[in-house]
Design a protein around this nucleic acid. Structure first.
Lengths: 228, 228
DNA sequence: CAGGATCCGATTAGATACTG
DNA sequence: CAGTATCTAATCGGATCCTG
């Protein structure tokens, strides 16, 4: 009985595809706006290309996503109507996770993913006209994962693993955990800045504007519960 | 990376335990009111006792359920507050499954599970005082799965695989598929009865009352969609 | 960039038999 | 009834290398 449950219960039928490994994270990426294979892949680090392709095929067969041509020889993925209706399901799972899932472990603290998650929701409209470059320094990360840059235009935001060649307008020095906990909404940003656990360097106007650029996780407003 | 995703995203953290095989079906049973190991097991046919125990342990560790003493040397399971908050999540998944999941395949049509599902939601209050015995005959099932009996008191309902020793008050003759589709809300009951795809035998008053006893699936009211 | 083709290894599911 | 214990097989995930 590989995969299936042999039950006609709607929960069992939905589970057959949705609870396969990586599935929900892939759908999450599509909900977040990813369309290309590479984008999805970056949002789901850990999955191999082979497996990602298999999962995308399964999702397509299940009617959750569809492939479409994006330029000749290129293609992309988007949610179907059925897929769109997974948004509230994902929202429910995320809300539950925010409230009740286990605490963050050191292993979970991938700075690359954190930056990737932040870049997707940056409010470029609130930023100064022209280009703004934000540099991140994660003091607790491994050497090759210590520095990232967000090159923000309107409305594109690009993530760079190498110096982008433009001067930084703002440099954020912090730990992955501090930034992740703020992004999750587990701690408010302002006190972290005051205590310099998150340290900004750059022009005062930019430092003061930064909190408005940074849109936190969708679930940041959901209050975490503690198990008895 | 066995099991986990190494991501601090709430969806990923919740998925770590919730998307393990059988998990959602086990939680479904607990939501439906099962408390004892054997009850859960009957609602999730296919899972072995070994695996069910492992899953229950994992759920307990995750804070979703708790074990408690039920009589000496007996114990039982119940949802914690965190577990209770999975109800809306399950409801969302079931709703999605009702609308968009794949069609029922012959393999899914387990008559034993169908009867088990029906017995949980029978409205005994709407039934005549005293005991009512309903017999089911599934003409399309394998010989050893053709006949079932529901022995209904107030409010207990017992499922019997052997003749219970009391005369049947009502006998329902049908196919597993017809009954399952009605239970899922994919077809209304009355036309099935008129066309005798679901055939009742017994006193007229009971035959006419039967539709009121039978509470369908939680998702029967959700309209199924067809993929383009 | 977006995969395809293999290959290997570990986990895990499942069967079976047994127990307080 | 509510599990344990053990074993096996298979699946699945992941790595590696390759390609239009």
């Amino acid at each position: 009985m590989p995969g299936g449950y042999r039950q006609f219960c709607p929960i069992a039928l939905a589970s057959e595809t949705l609870t396969q490994r990586w599935m929900l994270l892939i759908v999450r990426e599509l909900c977040a706006g990813a369309t290309r294979f590479g984008e999805i892949s970056r949002g789901v680090p850990g999955i191999t290309a082979t497996l990602l392709k298999r999962r995308l095929d399964t999702l397509e067969q299940a009617g959750v996503i569809e492939r479409y041509a994006a330029g000749h020889t290129r293609h992309a993925y988007r949610l179907t109507r059925a897929g769109e209706e997974l948004r509230p399901v994902l929202a429910g799972i995320g809300t539950w996770g925010q409230r009740w899932a286990r605490d963050i472990r050191p292993d979970d603290l991938d700075p690359g993913w954190l930056v990737w998650a932040m870049h997707r929701r940056l409010d470029t409209a609130a930023m100064p006209p022209g280009r703004t470059v934000i540099g991140f320094i994660f003091s607790d990360a491994l050497p090759h994962q210590r520095r990232f840059w967000l090159v923000c235009s309107h409305p594109e935001v690009e993530v760079c693993l190498q110096p982008p060649g433009h001067e930084e307008d703002l440099i954020v020095t912090t730990t992955v955990r501090a930034m992740a906990e703020v992004w999750r909404g587990l701690r408010p940003l302002t006190p972290e800045m005051r205590s310099e656990r998150i340290l900004l360097a750059g022009r005062l106007a930019l430092r003061r504007a930064f909190p408005r650029w940074l849109k936190l996780s969708m679930f940041a407003g959901v209050e975490r519960q503690t198990r008895p």
